[in-house]
């Protein structure tokens, strides 16, 4: 556990903290995805909202996502320092003190939720506050270190921005808003487990119970296929609920078919099976050939989710009707 008093003793400021180091605490790349899905929810609500207030709502979603990322980096500094992928982050590298990351996270959380409530509406503010708390407390402090289902349940935090955007525009969050949430929620396991099949040696070293570390690669590949089979019909569903139109249906069906083929190929591969060797010998990272199927699914999952939401965004922005 990481606390203010539990920072690793070897962490010393390598150089004076620059504003860019604090910006990195906000995980700007993750923030951009959250902004995109939140904007899609806001546009799909099909309710007039003043452009400035719409921009404020998106800003609040972005800042809230950044705040939860800063809280995550404060709490996870100990395990981040043990993983190659994350050891360069501002807190484990000593560029920013843990207490400063905590203060930034709390300040931005209060700012984003307060501004959302006062400028837009309190339903959107409540959903934003729930998202931040769920990511920082339920996922980061509890699930991540205690169960291989961490990213399944914790994925809810990353899935909520469309509902926040919808609530910001409409003042309500109807079933179609939650269908968008469900799409991201069901997409998350296949996406992250595909990634973890070729990066889990890092998680193993840090003691994070990712699925391939705990249940093995074969079980993870099977679960990826199960979640893919559940996910693709849900991704197609908006075409029949008045949310998506013809273009959406074509993208959801075509992309869904590719998604399932890639998940099936991953099941038949040996992706992740050499990770046990890698974990016992730091010199062995030669899993590239076997990990290709995992990487293909991981990369396509990003393209597919982006395409689904881009189709919804375009159809509603252009006023194209649903089926």
């Amino acid at each position: 556990m990481t606390g203010l008093a539990a920072q690793p003793a070897e962490i010393r400021p390598a150089a004076p903290a620059r504003w860019q180091d604090y910006f990195q605490l906000l995980k700007p790349r993750v923030m951009s995805l959250v902004v995109f899905t939140g904007l899609t929810g806001l546009v799909c609500a099909d309710r007039p909202i003043h452009p400035f207030l719409g921009a404020v709502a998106i800003l609040c979603i972005a800042v809230g996502a950044g705040a939860s990322a800063a809280l995550n980096m404060w709490f996870d500094a100990d395990i981040d320092g043990k993983m190659r992928r994350t050891r360069g982050r501002p807190v484990p590298s000593g560029k920013v003190q843990g207490a400063d990351a905590l203060a930034l996270g709390i300040t931005l959380s209060l700012f984003s939720v307060g501004l959302m409530g006062m400028a837009v509406n309190w339903l959107a503010a409540f959903l934003l506050a729930f998202t931040i708390l769920f990511y920082a407390v339920v996922y980061t402090m509890w699930l991540k270190r205690s169960t291989p289902q961490n990213i399944v349940i914790g994925g809810l935090a990353g899935a909520l921005p469309p509902a926040i955007g919808w609530a910001a525009a409409a003042g309500t969050a109807p079933l179609n808003a939650w269908l968008m949430v469900l799409i991201i929620f069901m997409w998350t396991p296949a996406h992250f487990w595909a990634l973890s099949l070729y990066t889990s040696e890092d998680y193993g070293k840090a003691g994070v119970p990712m699925m391939p570390v705990v249940k093995g690669a074969k079980s993870t590949r099977q679960q990826i296929l199960v979640y893919s089979l559940l996910f693709v019909p849900i991704a197609i569903a908006p075409a029949f609920t008045g949310l998506g139109g013809t273009a959406y249906l074509a993208i959801a069906c075509g992309g869904g078919l590719v998604f399932l083929v890639l998940a099936l190929r991953l099941l038949r591969s040996h992706a992740g099976e050499q990770l046990m060797d890698v974990r016992t010998d730091d010199g062995l990272y030669g899993v590239k050939a076997d990990a290709r199927d995992a990487r293909n699914l991981f990369a396509f999952s990003i393209v597919y989710l982006f395409s689904l939401f881009a189709a919804l965004l375009a159809e509603h922005a252009l006023g194209l009707g649903a089926l």
Binding site: R18, W19, F52, L53, V56, L59, L115, M118, A119
Partner: peptide, 20 residues
């Protein structure tokens, strides 16, 4: 640099509240 970033953030906040 941090002071300038903080100042710009505060100015942006004031402008957002004013325009809102």
């Amino acid at each position: 640099g941090r002071n300038i970033a903080l100042a710009l953030g505060l100015i942006a906040f004031v402008l957002i509240v004013f325009v809102t």
